[in-house]
Computed example of a mutant assay.
Amino acid sequence: MSEVAYDGIRRVPPGYLLTTFEYDMDDPIVWPAHRHDEHELLWSVGGMARLEADGRVWAIPPALAVWVPSRVAHQASAERGARVRATYFTEGGPHDDAMPSVVTGVAMTEPLRALLDHNLMGAVDTDARMRVQRVILDLLVPAPRESFELVMPRSPHLHMVASAILADPGDKRTTADWGYECGMHGRTLARQFEVETGMTFTQWCILARLQLAIRELTHGRSIVSVSRQVGYRNPSTFIDHFRELTGQTPAEYVRGARSPRPSTG
Rank of each mutant, 00 (worst) to 15 (best):
H159F: 15
A164E: 14
P169V: 07
L137C: 12
Q133K: 03
L210M: 05
A162T: 00
L189T: 06
S163T: 10
R134L: 03
P153I: 06
Y180R: 15
V151S: 10
P169S: 09
A213H: 02
E181H: 11
R145E: 15
T174M: 02
M160Y: 13
T188M: 08
D177N: 11
R187N: 15
A164Q: 07
R187I: 14
M184I: 13
E181S: 06
P142I: 10
L210Y: 03
R187F: 11
M199E: 11
L137W: 15
L140S: 00
S155N: 04
S147M: 12
Q133R: 01
D168C: 07
H157V: 13
I206P: 00
Q133T: 03
R191I: 00
R209E: 01
R134K: 08
S155I: 11
L166K: 01
W178H: 05
Y180M: 13
G179S: 04
R134E: 12
M199I: 15
M160F: 13
G179Y: 04
L137Y: 12
V135R: 14
V141Y: 09
L207D: 02
V195W: 10
G179H: 00
T197L: 08
P142A: 13
K172W: 06
A167T: 01
H157Y: 12
F193Y: 08
H185L: 05
S147E: 14
G183K: 02
A176V: 08
A164W: 11
D168E: 07
S155K: 04
A176F: 07
M184L: 09
T202M: 13
F148P: 07
P169G: 03
P156L: 04
E194P: 03
I206R: 11
A190P: 04
P142M: 08
R145M: 12
D138H: 03
L150E: 02
T202P: 03
L137M: 12
V161N: 05
V135M: 10
W204F: 09
V151L: 13
R191C: 02
I214W: 06
G186L: 00
M152P: 05
P156K: 02
G183I: 03
L137S: 12
S155R: 08
A143H: 02
D171F: 03
A208E: 03
R145L: 14
A213K: 01
D177A: 07
V141L: 06
S155Y: 05
H185K: 10
T197S: 09
Y180Q: 15
Q211T: 05
D168R: 12
M184H: 04
E194H: 14
T188F: 02
L140D: 00
I206L: 10
P169H: 05
T197P: 13
G183D: 06
V195Y: 09
G183C: 04
T188K: 05
Q211A: 07
R187E: 15
Q133A: 02
M184D: 10
L210W: 04
Y180A: 14
V141A: 08
H185I: 02
V151K: 11
D171Q: 05
E146Y: 13
M160N: 09
S155P: 00
A208D: 00
V161I: 09
E196D: 10
A213L: 01
P153A: 07
I214E: 09
R134T: 08
R191G: 01
C205W: 03
